[in-house]
Simulated assay, not measured.
Amino acid sequence: MKTLLTSLSLLCIWLSANAQKQIFLYEGKPAGSENWTWEEAVSEKNIFNTKVVYNVSRPSITAYVPENPNGTAIVIAPGGAFHTLSIDSEGIDVAKWLNVRGITAFVLKYRVARSFTDDPAKEIIGKMSNFKALDEENAPIIPLATQDGMKAIKYIREHASEYKIDPKKVGFMGFSAGGTLTMSVVYSADDASRPNFVAPIYAYENAIIGNNMPKEKTPIFVAVAGDDQLGFMPHSINIYKKWFDAKQPAELHIYEKGGHGFGMRKTNTSSEGWIENFGNWLKMQGYIK
């Protein structure tokens, strides 16, 4: 009986420490999308073969809190062409990996363009053959998503003591469109909403908004596959070079294979090692003890 009670006690402690809490970033409907009437939904079976969230109209962050927080926090922005969010491979799975290393993670659901069917992946695949048209469609959405990203950073800093976070160790990372969002946030933010470090993973540079390179030291970690089907590899090189030329701490990884959207997927390529490389970089920068 004593052993059982001890086990249950430890289980309760573990569940409490690893509990996820969803926090809506605004009271009511946020500015810019007051007239949006669609409801957030989830697609489980689709061409992407992963869970995706779509029709986000109420931006939120979900906190993944480690048992022993080390003071570092990271906002994670999943990708999906600003139409969907690849919530597992480019969100929750990353958060869990960071938790093991003591980092408090916040998976961001930012505003995306409206999907008109219950198969948003099929909708977006049909649009990706014409990036010019897709950019035009996404143009009014990206500033809203950027506001959501900056709001998330501000929220975390305002509640830093609650989560045992050092407000000077708050980072932002994202994948594909989430990487575009990462760079839009760091280039557009003021002091209160600017992340201390960033990690754009296979970002799409053409849709980044803002151009204010931080004056403060802001390390960047960039990763992409050379065989990215969408041709985003040069975008990562350009982002890295801008950071390098600004004399900011910068690291770039280009994996021979991995394609676009490797995230936390098992690809049987060297791109699977990106997360370990990221962890080593975080340790070098002092964000993992």
Rank of each mutant, 00 (worst) to 15 (best):
G174V: 09
T180Y: 06
A199V: 07
P200L: 12
R194Q: 08
I156D: 01
F175Q: 05
A152F: 08
K154D: 12
Y187D: 08
I209H: 06
T180W: 06
S161Q: 14
R194I: 01
L181Y: 06
R194Y: 02
F197K: 00
G179Q: 07
I209W: 08
L144K: 15
A152P: 04
A177S: 15
K168C: 06
I208H: 03
P143A: 13
V186E: 02
G210R: 03
E158N: 14
I208R: 02
R157V: 07
I141N: 01
G171N: 10
I209Q: 13
K169Q: 12
I209V: 14
T146F: 03
D166H: 07
D190P: 02
A160T: 09
R157M: 09
A203F: 01
I156M: 08
E158R: 12
F197G: 01
V170L: 05
F172T: 04
K169R: 15
N196M: 00
I201R: 00
M173V: 08
G179P: 04
I165R: 00
S176I: 10
Y202S: 01
A160V: 09
S188F: 04
P143G: 12
I156W: 02
K164I: 07
N206C: 09
D190F: 06
Q147V: 10
Y163H: 11
E158G: 12
Q147N: 15
A207T: 15
K168Y: 11
I208Q: 03
F172Q: 03
A189C: 06
F172L: 12
D190H: 06
P167M: 12
D190Q: 08
Q147W: 02
A199I: 07
F175N: 05
K151A: 15
I165S: 00
P195M: 11
I142H: 01
A207R: 15
N212G: 06
T180F: 06
A177G: 11
P200N: 11
I153V: 15
F197Q: 02
F197C: 04
Y155N: 08
G179Y: 05
T182S: 09
L144E: 04
D166Q: 08
F197V: 04
N206K: 15
G174A: 12
A207M: 14
Y202H: 11
A152W: 03
S193E: 10
I156Y: 02
I165Y: 02
